[in-house]
């Protein structure tokens, strides 16, 4: 398992179960794009230029809005929705410190929610393989390729799927599948509960700011509960996530 090649393949394979969440996500993106009369080429290009599912989904919804959403507001929304990537970036940065600039620029481009979840899981495993970035690369490229294919499929069949199938709900379901299994200690449960409550209370804030506020409330709550419970868990030698 220590050779780059086997790490790469293992990382790619670890993303296969996530396809179940990606496929309906890509389809609903195509449905929304078609409904909003966004040119097919733009829908497809966004998958490689922006490469962030929820931001793309919001963007095509805004493109179909009446009256039209002004461009600066769309760009600002993308910025806000993707703010969480700064925190993924902060988490992966120290682990990639030793890599060349080219590696860093490539791995950063691939840094999605899913790639972070899968790659972070590899870094939290106790062994000190020097090739964990190959595992992340395998996961990131597999996710990139499947996202291109799935959104292309979405564009091709998007117009045919009736809205009453409620496929947009599969997005929340795939987030549930990613989150519930990590709710294993009191601080994380408190953090998630506070974030969920705050998200409901802040739901009417403009520009998706409610999400950012709720995340901040959740993070601070988790840290407070962790402190009250006697400090952070022991930090693994190479990890930063405790």
């Amino acid at each position: 398992m220590s050779a780059p090649r086997s790490e790469f393949i293992a990382g790619a394979r670890a993303t296969l179960p996530l396809l179940a969440g990606d496929l309906p996500f890509g389809l609903i993106y195509g449905v929304q794009g078609a409904a909003a009369h966004v040119p097919a080429l733009v829908i497809v290009a966004m998958s490689s230029v922006i490469f962030a599912g929820s931001a793309q989904l919001i963007a095509v919804t805004q493109l179909g809005a009446v009256p039209p959403v002004p461009s600066p507001v769309m760009v600002l929304t993308t910025l806000v929705v993707n703010l969480r990537h700064i925190l993924y970036s902060a988490s992966m940065g120290p682990r990639w410190r030793h890599l060349s600039r080219g590696w860093k620029w490539l791995l950063a481009y691939l840094l999605t929610d899913e790639a972070y979840a899968v790659g972070n899981g590899r870094y939290l495993r106790a062994d000190d393989s020097p090739h964990k970035h190959w595992y992340y690369l395998g996961a990131g490229l597999a996710l990139w390729v499947s996202w291109q294919l799935v959104t292309l499929l979405g564009v091709l069949v998007g117009g045919q799927i009736p809205g009453r199938w409620d496929l947009d709900f599969s997005v929340a379901l795939s987030f549930i599948a990613l989150t519930l299994p990590v709710l294993r200690d009191r601080a994380v449960v408190a953090s998630a509960t506070a974030a969920g409550l705050a998200a409901v209370l802040a739901n009417d804030l403009p520009l998706k700011l409610g999400l950012i506020v709720a995340a901040a409330v959740g993070i601070v709550t988790g840290m407070v509960v962790e402190t009250l419970a006697g400090g952070p868990k022991p930090v693994p030698a190479r990890g930063v996530d405790g």
Binding site: F175, L197, M223
Partner: peptide, 30 residues
Amino acid sequence: IVPLGRVTLPPVLVRGLRFVPPAVLTAIIV
């Protein structure tokens, strides 16, 4: 990622990081 090649994160931010994915995703789900 690029700047952090030289900078070390303050411990308080490091501690908060593990709460980011569950907090953000729950804030979308609920």
